[in-house]
Design a protein around this nucleic acid. Structure first.
Lengths: 338, 338
DNA sequence: CGTGAGTTTGTTACCGCTATCATGAAAAAC
DNA sequence: GTTTTTCATGATAGCGGTAACAAACTCACG
């Protein structure tokens, strides 16, 4: 019934390959890691043996022996948010063909879950971290610092990163978009937000600062901690318009909400942008596809991934990056909806 | 005494905890894995020591010693496709709090990349696989079979799975949606497709079968291998309408295309569904949000993830699932766009 | 032809943990 | 009271690799 666990897994090991060729296993190991140090003929024979026996290296053993796992962790809040899939693409582009494996984790926007993930990936022996956000639990911070591993915090731009950082100011981006709306002549600008994580709050803060600087009323603000969705965008639009019918523009803390609001406007016959202007945040594909197209803050997600990976890679190769805190900026894209 | 240089990583190990408490390391190990086998007082002291020293287990060492990594691999074609983030959610829901780690890999719709991923995750010593699709390279198949690990193929429903399978027939789903359009009275139904992976081709086949069965013209079909996007949906719509202006309905192989086409209709002043009906595939959130809402084939992505994970988990616990090939079905949702 | 440097291969000792078996003491059974 | 079982803990030997050092062999050069 209960099978006795064998000590040996039955898998082909280095030793098996070595015995097959009639050499020692360290030489087989060298063929895989430092082929130039092995004579061509022997290398050839070893490679054939590997092929014939179907040998697959055991990375756990390798990592244990060398104290290097050749893997890094990329921690994001959400995988269903397209924002982060582009970050991943950037990271993957840099680490492809370097022999490094990118392990993906998602914290569901929870700092505690993030802490757990950090702990998990430390136990996997990752060689470095790329982590979204700069808000962590104290213990998470401590884990990272004590690990002495290279860490890149991305998306935001903390004043004092744990180690390195690549991102931009969401507060300033929120300010700039609001400012652009104001300059375009909109008088009564509302704000709609969902999820309201740290970054969304900063966008809101930017909106508020711009409104106050322009001596405009900053009361038309509706936020919820519920996760963002198209439907929620429609609901928020409805609520905002019910409470502040005089609004002539709404800045949403992300594109999903803005798109959902646009659909709701179409449903209600509200003409965009004539009656009501809309703006989103992130510059997802959809903002460029809807009718009218959506004004938005285009955030350089892929570039953030690329730069973060570049910094981390340098560190992994024991080189010193010229800078360790990169402001990628963003772009205010005024489109059909405003 | 010439002492060899130590290779130790400097990290806190089981041995350190054991020494701190004044016991052997195997007992510390037991506290973590089989706490009931350790006396309560000792357990308490060990736990305090672990806390105090900040011990984090090394999973690679554990996996190496026990030949069990307590991790599984989930391989999907794409992470930017929201279809798969819901599958992941289902899988994660089952494996949360089981001590199993879900390692995510994406093949970018390439069978060769998939093969590479399988090899990589085998070298990580995963205990099982959940793999999207049933089209694999010969070597990938062989790797999986030889590994003797439990494997669940998902999304499609192959006649002869490698091991287990959870999915449904995309051909039948394509047929059913087309059939529903025909029954609703549409006379000239086109098909628009992108990416055209195996599953998309099956949907096309279903459309074609329904058209032929109804003795309708199945020539109005436009597909491309380019990746799907909203913009591409607009382009395909434009091309279809240019070549077959008489079309009164279009079935797209996914929701992104359908939504993009809808936006393009709005742009061109084509009334949906009066002048042209649209239908998508997958039932993403957006289909329920646009105006009009989009008819679509709602695929049970989360459930597929749940069921696949359930089967795999049973296998990992050495239990035998009652069935190893689950047809989840799907739902034809007729909404505002048709 | 001896010598030293460079190249190629091997030996040994771990990495940090767990499987297995062993041990002594306490509890249960006879 | 003795034997058996159970419980709590420990000693030992790996798991499958790699680092560090060592040895054997090559080859150029004086």
């Amino acid at each position: 019934m209960v099978r006795r666990a064998r000590r040996s897994s039955g898998r082909v090991t280095l030793q098996d390959v070595a015995k097959y060729v009639g050499i020692s296993k360290i030489t087989v190991s060298r063929v895989l890691r430092e082929p130039h140090r092995v004579s061509p003929e022997l290398k050839e024979r070893v490679e054939q043996a590997i092929e014939r026996l179907g040998y697959i290296p055991n990375r756990q053993a390798g990592a244990l022996a060398s104290a290097r796992s050749h893997s890094i962790a990329l921690l994001v809040p959400s995988l269903s948010n397209l924002v982060f899939s582009e970050v991943l693409r950037g990271v993957a582009d840099v680490f492809d063909d370097t022999g490094y494996q990118v392990l993906l984790g998602h914290s569901s926007y929870s700092a505690f879950e993030e802490e757990r993930l950090i702990s998990t990936y430390l136990s996997y022996g990752v060689d470095g971290f790329i982590i979204s956000g700069s808000r962590h639990t104290d213990r998470a911070r401590e884990l990272l610092i004590r690990s002495q591993l290279p860490v890149v915090e991305i998306m935001e731009l903390p004043a004092k990163p744990i180690d390195m950082a690549v991102g931009f100011s969401h507060e300033q981006a929120g300010f700039d978009m609001t400012h652009a709306l104001i300059k375009a002549g909109y008088q009564r600008i509302g704000f709609g937000g969902a999820r309201m994580d740290h970054r969304a709050q900063n966008r809101l803060a930017g909106w508020r600062r711009a409104m106050i600087e322009a001596r405009m009323d900053d009361s038309a603000c509706l936020t919820t901690t519920r996760p963002s969705s198209y439907r929620l965008g429609a609901d928020i639009l409805a609520d905002l318009m019910a409470r502040w019918p005089e609004l002539d523009a709404i800045f949403f803390c992300n594109d999903d909400l803005a798109a959902g609001a646009l659909f709701e406007c179409q449903r209600r016959g509200i003409r965009v942008p004539e009656q009501l202007a809309l703006a989103g945040y992130n510059g997802l594909d959809i903002t460029d596809a809807t009718f009218p197209t959506l004004s938005t803050v285009v955030t350089p997600r892929r570039r953030i991934g690329l730069e973060a990976a570049r910094l981390l890679k340098l560190r992994l190769l024991d080189e010193t990056p010229e800078e360790t805190r990169i402001d990628t900026g963003y772009e205010i894209a005024i489109r059909g909806s405003s």
